[in-house]
């Protein structure tokens, strides 16, 4: 089991989460690419990137910075925290 340190939650096992991937919101306009390309062609190069992680028990989304090849986690922040204030 993988354990990750989260703000407000503390150290939690990865089994409590649903990983939402790196999906961006659907833009109003697709700049010159087809819908199929936008939906299906994902950049899957192993690298350090920010992913959406959902904590099921608290129903909170977090942004987790993780290396997708080594599975190393560099940190997590509460998603949407910026708009709370």
């Amino acid at each position: 089991m993988k354990y990750i340190d989260f703000p407000t939650l503390g150290r939690r096992p990865s089994s409590e989460f649903v990983v939402g991937g790196i999906i961006d919101p659907e833009p109003a306009e697709l700049d010159g690419i087809s819908p199929g390309e936008w939906v299906f062609n994902r950049d899957s190069i192993p690298m350090r990137r920010t992913e959406w992680w959902y904590h099921t028990p608290t129903q909170l989304w977090f942004l987790v910075e993780r290396h997708t090849a080594t599975d190393e986690v560099f940190g997590a922040t509460l998603a949407g925290a910026a708009i709370d204030g």
């Binding site: 649903v18 939402g20 961006d24 919101p25 959406w52 959902y54 099921t56 129903q59 909170l60 989304w61 998603a79 949407g80 910026a82 708009i83």
Partner: peptide, 19 residues
Amino acid sequence: VRQLQQYADQLGFNVAIVD
């Protein structure tokens, strides 16, 4: 619920979602 919350977080909507 998960999906709505993610959309709200992604787009910065000021919404409280209560399951």
